[in-house]
Computed example of a mutant assay.
Amino acid sequence: MNQLQAMRVFVSVAEHGSFGRAAASLAMSNAVVTRYVALLEAHLETRLINRNTRSASLTEAGAAYAQGCRQVLDDLERIETHIAHGVSVPSGILRVVAHASFSLHDLTPLLQHYLAAFPKVRLSLTLLHRPVDLIEEGFDAGIVAPRQVSGGTLIRRPLVSVAPIAVAAPAYLASHVANGVANRAVNGVAEGIAAPMRPADLARHTLLAPSADIHGNEWHFERADGTRETVLIEPAYAVNNSVMLRQAALAGMGITILPANHVAADLAQGLLVRMLAGWEIREADKELSLVYPGRRHVPAKTRSFVDFTVEWFRKRDVAMPRAGYAVNSPDTALTNSMPAIIRTSGNS
Rank of each mutant, 00 (worst) to 15 (best):
F221M: 07
L232D: 01
E80H: 11
L276Q: 04
L39M: 09
A224S: 14
G180D: 15
A238F: 02
A284T: 09
A209M: 12
T81K: 08
A340C: 02
H129V: 05
H85W: 12
A319C: 05
A100F: 06
P293D: 03
E280C: 01
V32R: 14
D307W: 00
L107M: 11
M1Q: 07
G254D: 08
V181G: 01
G226S: 06
Q71N: 08
A116K: 14
T53I: 05
A23T: 10
R70G: 10
N347A: 12
T34G: 15
V291I: 11
A178V: 14
A264M: 07
D74P: 00
G270S: 06
L39N: 11
V144Q: 05
T34M: 07
S12F: 03
C69Q: 04
G192Y: 11
L127A: 05
H105C: 07
T108S: 11
V318I: 11
R47K: 14
N336A: 15
P259W: 01
L4P: 01
A84L: 05
V298Y: 05
A166C: 09
L173A: 06
A340W: 02
F118W: 06
V167S: 03
A38T: 09
S175G: 13
E80A: 12
Q5K: 13
P235W: 02
M7W: 13
R274I: 00
G151H: 03
G252A: 06
P90S: 05
G188D: 03
A166L: 07
A64Q: 13
E41S: 09
A56H: 10
N183Y: 00
V181D: 00
Q148S: 02
G20A: 14
T126M: 00
A212M: 07
S211G: 07
V186A: 02
M253F: 05
P170Y: 04
R147W: 07
V263C: 08
I193R: 09
I342F: 09
H129D: 12
E218M: 09
Y237F: 15
T335Q: 10
V310W: 08
P119K: 13
S18P: 08
Q67P: 02
A251T: 03
Q67M: 10
S103F: 00
V327P: 00
V186D: 11
G62K: 05
G20E: 08
H297E: 15
M338G: 01
E191G: 04
Q67C: 08
C69K: 00
L125S: 06
A209F: 11
E287Q: 14
A42N: 08
T34S: 15
S91Y: 03
V37S: 03
P321H: 10
R322S: 15
R198N: 14
E283H: 12
A238H: 04
L271E: 12
L202R: 08
K315T: 08
S175T: 05
E311S: 10
A14V: 02
R122C: 01
N52R: 06
V273I: 13
E77M: 01
A249N: 03
R130C: 00
G68S: 13
G254N: 07
R303N: 04
S348T: 03
E60T: 14
R204G: 03
L4Q: 14
V89I: 12
S12M: 13
R70Q: 15
N336Y: 09
A42L: 06
A185S: 12
T34L: 10
A200S: 11
F139L: 06
A249Q: 01
A22I: 05
H113Y: 02
P170L: 04
A203E: 08
